[in-house]
């Protein structure tokens, strides 16, 4: 196993992880905006990392230069088309996704947070007092 194959294997593994995350996000996220984020970011990163791995493995210079040109074009195309989808989604009046039980969760979170913060403050105060006394 040569050095080229090791680097290519690393970039392929990264590509597979990002691709699986992107496809999972495409199915798990609610709402078009969240899906757009998952698909565009993870999809672009996955394909681009696979390009880098293939570029390391390229058998000849002709293939390598073509891959570089494709990489440059892909770097221009993919974000622009994601932007076009986002603008289309915004202009077609799609509402943002909101969690259903938002107020109750927030109250509980803030109450728990206040309790924890108060406990921490009292602990710190007693500790400081103890240190000062000793």
């Amino acid at each position: 196993m040569s050095i080229r194959e090791i680097f290519a294997l690393i970039s392929f593994i990264v590509s597979a992880v990002f691709g699986l995350a992107g496809v999972a996000g495409l199915f798990r996220f609610p709402g078009p905006y969240a899906r757009l984020q998952a698909g565009s970011l993870c999809g672009t990163t996955s394909v681009f990392t696979a390009f880098i791995g293939v570029l390391i493995l390229a058998p000849s210079w002709a293939i390598a230069f073509r891959i570089i040109i494709i990489m440059i074009l892909f770097m221009v195309n993919a974000p622009v088309s994601s932007f076009i989808v986002a603008r289309f989604t915004w202009e077609s009046g799609t509402p943002m996704w909101k969690p259903k039980k938002k107020p109750r969760r927030r109250k509980a979170a803030t109450a728990a947070g206040r309790k924890a913060a108060a406990e921490q403050a009292t602990d710190a105060g007693t500790a400081e007092k103890g240190e000062a006394d000793s």
Partner: peptide, 30 residues
């Protein structure tokens, strides 16, 4: 909805491009 389909089409085009490039290098053909 329509934006979901457009997102899927966007990702599909990138994935197909990656497949073609990997296939070309695997076959060794330009």
């Amino acid at each position: 909805s329509t934006p979901d389909r457009l997102v899927a089409l966007n990702v599909l085009s990138g994935v197909t491009l990656g497949f073609l490039v990997v296939r070309g290098v695997a076959e060794g053909r330009v």
